[in-house]
């Protein structure tokens, strides 16, 4: 076959005979060994990720209300059709979007400021970095209890500070207007350390020479930050924006622990809604449909971000 190719083409170099993928796989012992190495992870992935994923998709076309899955009737697109008119679900989606709009830019700006300070050669900077990272590894329940105390309308330290400036106390978690911003504040505080570490990695990858050259050319520190630091941090910004949006759409713990969706449904977010449907009402089929619609929304939001990034002429990182 290889010879025939050579004759027909009239060229003198070797053209390998085409083999099927399967044959090529088995003819390379190194590749086979490689697959053996990843086999445990692959089995784990199949059993704990891919099968549940496919199962949940199938589930979303059934009306499974437990306990026996065998009795669950197949209802086609009924769950999705019902979801379109589910005012409560779309209210939760609106709240989730509001949470995302507040928390993603807010968290990124706050953590960038902290990272810029933590990037200085200061004495004890490692201790401060550790301190800022501590909320990340703390449990949500512990963090929530602390913040419920801080935000207490009567005895909370936040209202105490406001009172010192003559501002009347705010019922942070009890007022529908302030409950979601309070949750956002807590989430930003908790996630600050993680984002700070990513920013720090980005900042430390920027060559110092660029700042020095700019300084020699007479650039101020602000100009240097705006014209050099920020543009060179673009890949980090993009990474934090994408992961931040994905994470924010899945917010659950602070709502579950602190407000349970209240007051008056102002902090009811999509995942909390899914949790209630699935594990309080056992409406598993409908909850699965809700989860897949959430996936669609997150997927769409990520696509928009990727499209925007491409339009800017930057390479896509993922």
């Amino acid at each position: 076959m290889a010879t025939a190719n050579r004759t027909q083409a009239g060229v003198d170099h070797y053209v390998p005979a085409k083999q099927s993928l399967w044959k090529r796989f088995w003819s390379r012992s190194n590749e086979r060994v490689g697959y053996l190495f990843i086999l445990p992870s692959l089995i784990h992935l199949i059993i704990f990720v891919i099968i549940p994923l496919v199962f949940s998709l199938y589930l979303s076309f059934t009306d499974w209300r437990g306990p026996n899955f065998q009795n669950a009737p197949f209802v086609g697109l009924d769950n999705y059709e019902f979801l379109l008119g589910d005012r409560r679900y779309w209210n939760a989606m609106r709240n989730t979007a509001w949470y995302t709009i507040l928390s993603v830019p807010g968290g990124m700006i706050a953590s960038l400021i902290v990272a810029l300070v933590m990037n200085q050669k200061l004495r004890g900077v490692y201790i401060f970095r550790t301190l800022f990272f501590m909320p990340v590894i703390s449990s949500w329940v512990a963090v929530s209890v602390i913040w419920i105390t801080l935000l207490d309308p009567n005895a909370g330290i936040l209202n105490y500070v406001l009172r010192q400036f003559g501002i009347p106390p705010v019922n942070w978690l009890g007022d529908p207007a302030t409950a979601m911003p309070s949750i956002v504040l807590i989430s930003i505080w908790k996630g600050l350390g993680f984002q700070m570490v990513i920013w720090l990695a980005g900042l430390q990858a920027i060559p110092q020479e660029l700042h020095e050259a700019a300084a020699i050319d007479g650039a101020t520190r602000l100009q240097s930050f705006l014209r050099i630091t920020l543009p060179l941090l673009a890949p980090t910004t993009f990474f934090l924006a994408v992961t931040g949006v994905i994470g924010s759409f899945q917010v659950f713990s602070p709502v579950y622990v602190i407000t349970q969706g209240g007051p008056r449904g102002s902090t009811e977010v999509v995942v909390y809604n899914i949790y209630q449907r699935a594990f309080e009402v056992f409406d598993m089929g409908y909850a699965a449909a809700q989860a897949w619609v959430l996936f669609g929304v997150i997927f769409l939001a990520t696509l928009v971000q990727l499209w925007y990034r491409r339009r800017q002429g930057e390479e896509v990182l993922f």
Partner: peptide
Amino acid sequence: EPVSLEQMTQQ
């Protein structure tokens, strides 16, 4: 009212 009740009982 709900807000007053919450303030009375928060602690």
